[in-house]
């Protein structure tokens, strides 16, 4: 099903894209909930608990969809009701820009890494807007924390993306340096020398450190801290709106892990086994999602089982100094690799 890049047959092409996009969005939503179920079971087993059923996140979302939607008296209704939809929609849009295995992204060529960063940011901002417009003091505190957290992790995130793009450009990797397809087509590890590999490792760790904050999981669930500010951001949400927020959180986790996989672990299973035709795409497609699951378990589940929650200034300091420093070190090492 390789997408054709020709401009002819425009109408058919757009129709095909819309249908494929819709299918992909539904698939990604369901998969993100399934992965959350796996994450919860892993989390529980590591704590010697039985854990919820695998499909618990589905039950939660379905149940919430059928529940009454309560808007607090002091809330700003349009912002309060709109925020969850914007958060979920922007998170879903990321999926359209991520290449899955050897399949080209549906909207490939129309956006790049910078756009993905902005979509992630917009989704977080939408959540903060929802919190601010809730009219509750706890949501307000949660929204402030979300904004502070965003400002903290944007630095390492931007450094990671910019360094990789610069490296791809200077080392002559084929394709647009800001496009995800470039990194999927050719592994960055294969281009880099010894110093460069250490640099990429630093960037990978920095990016993994950002994942818990992007996805709102312990130790960076500061904006949704249950025992401190009663779920903060989402404390006033109920019913359909809350279901949308839950979905947005799951999809953000999935999208973030997919970006990590695309950037750093693009290896193709189909090429390794020498598959041809449809098998090649199917094998790569499945292998891609397995890789995403592994990243999610290592980067989210194990981290959230191992640590407690930071305070907001501690998290800020961590991202500005330690993680920021690590990403800058990675940048320097990559530059050395190119210059030498």
């Amino acid at each position: 099903m390789q997408r054709e890049n020709q401009e002819g047959d425009g109408g058919m092409m757009i129709l095909f894209k819309i249908l494929a996009g819709l299918a992909l969005l539904i698939f990604a939503s369901l998969l993100s909930l399934l992965y959350e179920g796996i994450d919860r079971i892993f989390h529980a087993r590591m704590q010697s608990r039985l854990g919820p059923p695998l499909f618990q996140p589905f039950y939660d979302v379905l149940k919430l969809l059928g529940k009454e939607n309560i808007v607090p008296r002091r809330a700003v209704p349009w912002a309060f009701n709109g925020a969850p939809w914007v958060a979920a929609a922007t998170a879903l849009m990321i999926v359209l820009y991520v290449p899955m295995g050897s399949l080209q992204p549906i909207l490939g060529g129309h956006g790049d890494l910078i756009l993905i960063l902005y979509l992630l940011g917009l989704s977080a901002v939408a959540m903060a807007v929802g919190g601010f417009s809730s009219g509750s003091i706890y949501s307000n505190v949660g929204a402030q924390r979300e904004m502070v957290l965003m400002m903290s992790y944007e630095l390492p995130l931007a450094v990671v993306i910019a360094s990789l793009a610069w490296f791809a450009y200077r080392s002559g990797m084929p394709g647009d340096p800001f496009s995800l397809e470039t990194y999927v087509g050719m592994s960055v590890w294969s281009v880099a020398g010894w110093t460069g590999s250490f640099g990429i490792l630093g960037l990978l760790i920095a990016l993994l450190a950002v994942v818990p904050a992007e996805t709102g999981k312990v130790p960076m669930d500061i904006a949704e801290a249950k025992t401190e500010i009663l779920e903060g951001l989402i404390s006033e949400y109920s019913g359909r709106n809350l279901a949308m927020f839950k979905l947005a959180f799951s999809i953000r986790t999935l999208a973030m892990c997919a970006v990590v996989v695309s950037l750093f672990f693009p290896w193709s299973l189909g090429r390794l086994l020498g598959f041809q035709g449809v098998f090649f795409f199917v094998a790569d497609f499945l292998f891609f999602w397995i890789k995403v699951l592994v990243v999610q378990v290592l980067g989210v589940t194990i981290i959230r089982t191992t640590f407690g929650r930071f305070k907001i200034w501690q998290a800020s300091r961590l991202y500005w100094y330690q993680v920021g420093g690590l990403s800058l070190a990675g940048m320097v090492l990559l530059s050395l690799d190119v210059i030498l």
Partner: peptide, 13 residues
């Protein structure tokens, strides 16, 4: 006390 700052694993232990 561990649960209060989100350290659920220590709480369950």
């Amino acid at each position: 006390a561990c649960y209060t700052f989100g350290y659920d694993s220590a709480f369950h232990l």
